[in-house]
Write a protein that binds this DNA or RNA. Sequence first.
DNA 1: ATTCTTTATCGTAATATTGCAATATAATAA
DNA 2: TTATTATATTGCAATATTACGATAAAGAAT
Lengths: 109, 109
Amino acid sequence: MGATKTEHFTDRQNAIAILIKALAHPARVAIVEYLMKVNTCICGDIVNELPLSQPTVSQHLKELKTAGLIKGTIEGNAICYCLDEKSISKLEDYFANISTRLEKKKNCC
Amino acid sequence: MGATKTEHFTDRQNAIAILIKALAHPARVAIVEYLMKVNTCICGDIVNELPLSQPTVSQHLKELKTAGLIKGTIEGNAICYCLDEKSISKLEDYFANISTRLEKKKNCC
DNA sequence: ATTCTTTATCGTAATATTGCAATATAATAA
DNA sequence: TTATTATATTGCAATATTACGATAAAGAAT
């Protein structure tokens, strides 16, 4: 054992879990918050912003990109990163939907 | 190495990452969605709803509870579970905030 | 008191994640 | 061409997560 039993869950559940998982690490939260904070795309200084080695940051960026949370386009010698609004919206909608449904509910706990 | 370097990130970043991580698994997504779907608290049939063994489900429930996403109160012989609206709201607000800020931004990617 | 039911914990195997040094790749600058 | 700079990949050690059988704990039912 040890591996997640994805085959037992719906595609939708697996997909949202993957998207959520991409942000389930403080380094990746920090990257997303940095990209949000600055007012343009960032071409090339993300490594310097984080207290981790260049290979580690590169790996986190790759995970965020694979999950679709950020976009990166090659800009000459550097890479230009920014957030992908669509996937952020997906997460927002997901939790907003749960919240809305909860308000209509009677909880006993 | 192998352990997350939490000491390098802010408390806020670590806290949101922990909350997000609690949902970064399809089984826990399924539990939360089940608790959202049914119209009352659920006292005792969560194990039967999931395609995983009882110890595994118990472990996932514990993680959700530790993170504050669900509440569980002892109800005689069973345990009565429901979602904790506050932590769901926290997630909703977090992503809504990012979305709002992104709209005001000029992206070049 | 004994049994049944429900949930938790322990122990452990399988797998995944995190982090970095070393190295590779690729565009730019000299 | 030969650096230099920016990013990616490889390989690996440390740690964490996932899953479940076995067992424990605790209240309910008999």
